[in-house]
Design a binder for these strands. Structure first.
Length: 555
RNA sequence: GGCCCCUUCGUCUAGUGGUUAGGACGUCAGAUUUUCAUUCUGAAAACAGGAGUUCGAUUCUCCUAGGGGCUGCCA
């Protein structure tokens, strides 16, 4: 690397945070101490990055990767970095980056360095770093580890088709085939120079040395060995001058001093290429540690979870709502479905990791404390929406009635439902053990807010019979004369009436519940009546008598 | 096809060379509850298969099967 510093002065600034310029022995010693301190601090302070591509909304798999990176960094007192990998201009989606940062923010995954926060290793958008990659790619060509290739995409496609026709389905651009292709290895030097000077479209490919056994030390999978002769000469720089993932990733991870690469398992097959790149670039000794996370699978286990799956199976796969800027299509998010970010994160962390104890509910700080990469599993985890719901239920019940009332009030105003003078805290107290989401309080108990418009068919059929009409008629008088509308007084009055009239308590109660709420189940009825109040109660009884069929008195 | 990864109840998982293989979600049953729900109690439910190593394998090794990923000038 010494040679590199003099050649690439610009790069050396980034590469050597504390360049040693020792005019005296004293300065030398001081510098050594500083360097030692620096290394000590660095070795105890990992730097990890979450590096999504802004090609659409982040889905839960990506978010879990971010979460694990975050937890790992925080646990070790390290730095969590957001880097935007926007090197594919054709797939760039407007708003995707904003969505990514908003999603991280919603989940409480704060990063210390990123495109909108800056940091000493910026810029953090790859599209703003393109000059960097070109330099390193040129170095690679100069050192013989990469070469220019002029084969057009069409030519490659034809080649593949040809080979397939000849019974070779797995043709790849590699050490066996590069000699018959249109590149700087096969073309005479002057021809290559002429083409480059003429601006002929070309890519730069890595020249994989076929005689190596590459060993990846993976924190989750252990040792993974791959023979380099199986690898293909991956494109490093595309014809548009931008790097591919492989090139950009390795260069940036090095320049940003990334110590641990924690990413999805889909990257495991290309990790040998990355290892080779580190070596070819002269960074073999500074390679980060790798940890490849298991994938999140579809609930039916058929493949990894993709954005269409949620749609088909009726649950969100995105943290927040996303409207596709092209099609206008709306993709539902966990947030809008009613999930608390805490519950969402808690659910997510357990998809592939566990603390080894029986504790299931964790706050983010608790997760930071408990998280260990060693405890991340190897096998893909199927996403289970029922369990996700259960987590939300737990968090919902953890809130006080007043907190819940505030959330309900907010939701009601968004839905433009007038709560009037309804005691929302009381409603929440009665409903919190019966729902998984705030919205369900309204959805399953609209009767707190409005007079029932319809009456549940099944309940009417099964319970609205015998002396129901007569009973409600008589009860109307009883309730009209009642002054105290608290649950106890109501219940006492009701009991007294029921006993006197010889009604069955349970049956009578269901009939009353039906006219008051329109449904057959719910919280204790007299608590409901106490909340909706006298005039509304009487009105509903009258309406019920008018709307429901008259039942015959049967003995 | 090739390469790589993976495999404990339906699902998420704990676990150890000798365990009644533990927990959670879900399911079912019972109790409590004026209904629904909650809560409580209980039940059913797993080491993919085959060899080998070993006194003994769910645990270690190999093979097979199954699943997944990658195989783009996408990431």
């Amino acid at each position: 690397m010494g040679g590199k510093i003099s050649i690439n002065a610009g790069k050396s600034e980034i590469l050597d945070p504390l360049p040693i310029r020792a005019p005296s022995y004293c300065m030398f010693v001081i510098n050594c101490v500083i360097l030692w301190l620096f290394h000590t601090i660095m070795s105890g302070n990992p730097r990890v990055r979450f590096a999504p591509s802004p090609t659409g909304p982040l889905h839960i798999g990506g978010l879990r990767t971010a979460l694990y990176n975050y937890l790992f960094a925080k646990k070790q007192g390290g730095v969590f970095i957001l880097r935007i990998e926007d090197t594919d201009q054709t797939r760039y989606v407007e708003g995707a980056e904003a969505y990514i940062t908003a999603a991280l923010n919603w989940c409480g995954l704060e990063y210390q360095e990123g495109p909108d926060k800056g940091g000493e290793y910026g810029p953090y958008r790859q599209s703003e770093r393109s000059g960097l990659y070109r330099e390193y790619a040129a170095d690679l060509v100069a050192s013989g580890h990469a070469y220019y290739a002029f084969d057009t995409p069409e030519a490659l496609e034809n080649k593949r088709a040809d080979m397939k026709a000849k019974g070779i389905p797995a043709w790849q651009y590699d050490h066996r085939t590069r000699g018959e292709m249109d590149n700087s290895l096969t073309l005479p030097d002057d021809e290559v120079q002429r083409r480059l000077a003429a601006g002929e479209p070309h890519v730069i490919r890595i020249k994989v040395n076929p005689d190596e056994e590459i060993t990846i030390q993976d924190q989750i999978r252990g040792e993974v060995k791959v023979m380099s002769k199986e690898l293909d000469d991956k494109v490093l720089m595309k014809a548009d001058g931008l790097p591919t993932y492989h090139m950009a990733n390795v260069v940036d991870d090095r320049l940003m001093r990334i110590t641990h690469v924690i990413r999805g398992e889909e990257w495991l097959p290309s990790t040998p290429i990355h290892v080779l790149l580190y070596k070819y670039l002269g960074w073999g000794d500074e390679m980060p540690e790798f940890a490849h996370l298991p994938l999140i699978l579809r609930p039916d286990g058929k493949g990894k979870l993709s954005k269409r799956d949620g749609d088909k199976m009726g649950f969100p796969v995105f943290p927040m709502d996303w409207t596709d800027p092209g099609s206008g299509e709306l993709w539902p998010g966990f947030r809008e479905t009613g999930f608390y970010p805490e519950a969402f994160v808690n659910m997510l962390v357990f998809l592939g990791w566990n603390p080894g104890t029986e504790q299931e509910l964790f706050t983010l700080p608790e997760l930071v404390e408990a998280f260990e990469v060693d405890r991340v599993g190897k096998a893909g985890a199927r996403f289970d929406y029922e369990k996700a719901t259960w987590f939300n239920e737990q968090y919902l019940r953890d809130h006080s009635d007043d907190e819940l009332a505030g959330q309900l009030s907010e939701w009601l105003s968004v839905q433009q439902v007038a709560a009037g003078s309804t005691d929302l805290a009381a409603v929440c107290r009665l409903m919190k053990e019966r729902v998984s989401f705030i919205r369900e309080i309204y959805e399953s108990a609209m009767y707190f807010f409005e007079t029932p418009a319809t009456y549940d068919d099944k309940t009417v059929r099964k319970k609205w019979k015998g002396r129901s009409t007569q009973m409600i008629t008589e009860l109307l008088t009883v309730f009209e004369g009642l002054e105290d509308y608290d649950p106890d007084s109501l219940e006492a009055a009701f009991k007294q009436y029921v006993e006197k009239g010889g009604y069955g308590f349970g049956a009578a109660l269901v009939s009353l519940r039906l006219v008051i709420t329109g449904v057959g189940g719910g919280p204790p009825l007299f608590d409901i009546i106490a909340i909706i109040g006298k005039s509304e109660t009487l009105a509903r009884m009258k309406k019920g008598l008018g709307s429901l069929p008259r039942t015959e008195t049967v003995y």
